[in-house]
Design a protein around this nucleic acid. Structure first.
Length: 226
DNA sequence: GCATTAACCACAG
DNA sequence: CTGTGGTTAATGC
C-alpha cells in the first residue's frame, strides 16, 4: 500500500525538510505495512533491502550473542527509523527487529533514502542528529550494562518504560520475564526473584505483566546504587 | 571466614 | 512461561 507522505501525521524531522518534489519522489518508493506483535521487521542474517520508519507501535532490536544467548539491544518507540546503520554499508541485517506492540511502518528502499541524503543536506543533517543521539545513548547504556548490578539494571528498565515509553507509573510490560532478562543481561530466574523482592518491599505492585510503580523514590535509589 | 551476587538446575503450577 | 528453592562459584570485606 502506498502511503500519503504529505499528509502523514507522524512525519520525521528529516522528512519535514523535504520539498514537494522530494516528498512525492519518496512517497512513490514507499510501502506502508501493518505488523502485529511477534511479527518480524528484520531477521538477523537475512538480506536487507529497506529502511523502516516506524510510525506507530513498539519494537525491539535484538541480536544473538555468544553461546546463542539472545540480547535485546534496545526497545524502540515510534516514531523512529530502524535499520539506517544497516543500510549504510551492509546488505545483510546485522540485528533483528521484532514487533512488541502492533506497528504501522513504511519501508523506504536504500536507494531512495541515499538519493534523499544526496539531494537535501537538511534531510541528511536531521538523520545525522538522530544517529548521534542514538550513539550517545548507546555509550551510556553500554556503561550501565557493564558496571551496574542486575537490580540497578532492572530498576532502570522499569523506570525507562515509565518515563520514556508509557509516560505513566502504571503500564503493561511489553516483555516476558525471559525478554526482560535478555534486555538487562541476566537470567529469567533472577528477574523473577528481583520482581518478587520489589513487590515484597512495597516498591512495585505486579499482576502478571501489569506493573505499578508505587515507590518511585526507592526504585530510583536502587537504580542509583547500581 | 562470612556475606553478597548471580548462574544453573530442577520441579511445580 | 513463571516462581521458588537448592547448590555452586566468584568476589569483596
Amino acid at each position: 500500500m502506498i502511503p500519503d507522505c504529505t499528509n502523514c501525521g507522524f512525519k520525521s524531522f528529516a522528512v519535514n525538510t523535504l520539498d514537494f518534489n522530494q516528498i512525492a519522489f519518496m512517497q512513490d518508493k514507499c510501502t506502508e505495512t501493518v505488523l502485529k506483535r511477534g511479527e518480524v521487521v528484520y531477521k538477523e542474517g537475512a538480506s536487507f533491502q529497506s529502511i523502516a520508519y516506524i510510525r506507530s507501535g513498539l519494537v525491539k532490536l535484538h541480536k544473538i550473542g555468544f553461546n546463542d544467548r539472545e540480547q535485546i539491544l534496545k526497545i524502540v518507540k515510534a516514531p523512529n527509523y530502524v535499520g539506517i546503520p544497516i543500510a549504510i554499508g551492509h546488505f545483510i541485517a546485522q540485528y533483528s527487529v521484532t514487533v512488541l506492540e502492533d506497528v504501522t511502518l513504511c519501508f523506504i528502499s536504500i536507494d531512495t533514502f541515499k538519493c534523499l541524503l544526496d539531494e537535501n543536506k537538511n534531510f541528511a543533517y536531521q538523520i545525522i542528529v538522530d544517529l548521534c543521539k542514538n550513539e550517545l545513548d548507546n555509550y551510556k547504556n553500554c556503561l550501565h550494562k557493564v558496571q551496574k548490578h542486575s537490580a540497578g539494571l532492572l530498576a532502570d528498565a522499569l523506570l525507562n518504560f515509565a518515563s520514556s515509553i508509557y509516560n505513566s507509573l502504571e503500564y503493561k510490560l511489553p516483555l516476558s520475564r525471559q525478554e526482560l532478562a535478555d534486555l538487562i543481561g541476566t537470567s529469567r530466574e533472577n528477574v523473577s526473584r528481583m520482581l518478587s523482592d520489589f513487590q515484597r518491599d512495597g516498591i512495585l505492585k505486579i499482576e502478571n505483566k501489569y506493573i505499578n510503580i508505587v515507590d518511585v523514590k526507592r526504585l530510583k535509589l536502587i537504580s542509583g546504587l547500581g
